[in-house]
């Protein structure tokens, strides 16, 4: 069962530059931590695919097994796990998230 879920996750993170596994949707986040990451991405003006784990229990657990990371949200850039809310915010403040996006060739509107 697990590899079907992992295959689905891999497909999502390989076919979209930036993917956010979150609680709720970009338009309607349903958790403060997920909302915080959505805000960072919106501030940077980087397009991303939001995946609402609340709508899919298998993904909600599968994503935690996939990265050995016990919480949601989880941000991926070019197939690579970047981190959860704390790390994304720290990287954003330190300018490291912007560096990572540039390095990976992911365009974003505002350098912020």
């Amino acid at each position: 069962m697990e590899n079907i879920i992992f295959e689905r996750i891999k497909k999502d993170i390989e076919t979209n530059d930036v993917v956010l596994f979150m609680k709720g949707t970009a338009a309607f986040p349903q958790c403060g931590f997920s909302a915080a990451v959505v805000q960072v991405l919106s501030q940077l003006g980087v397009p991303f695919k939001d995946i609402n784990v609340l709508e899919d229990a298998a993904i909600r657990q599968g994503i935690k097994d996939f990265t050995q990371w016990p919480t949601i949200p989880q941000l991926y850039v070019k197939g690579e796990f970047v981190g959860g809310c704390d790390i994304v915010r720290e990287m954003f403040v330190a300018g490291e998230l912007q560096e990572l996006l540039k390095e990976k060739g992911v365009s974003f509107k505002n350098a912020a």
Binding site: Q68, W69, P70, F81, G83, G84, D86, I87, E90
Partner: peptide, 27 residues
């Protein structure tokens, strides 16, 4: 890396993260 550092902390928390520990911000 930041992710590895946090994973060390999660390992120390022995699976409680996301269970009894709902909202723990880690720095």
């Amino acid at each position: 890396s930041r992710v590895q550092q946090h994973q060390l902390v999660y390992a120390a928390l022995k699976g409680k993260m996301g269970m009894e520990l709902h909202a723990l911000s880690i720095h």
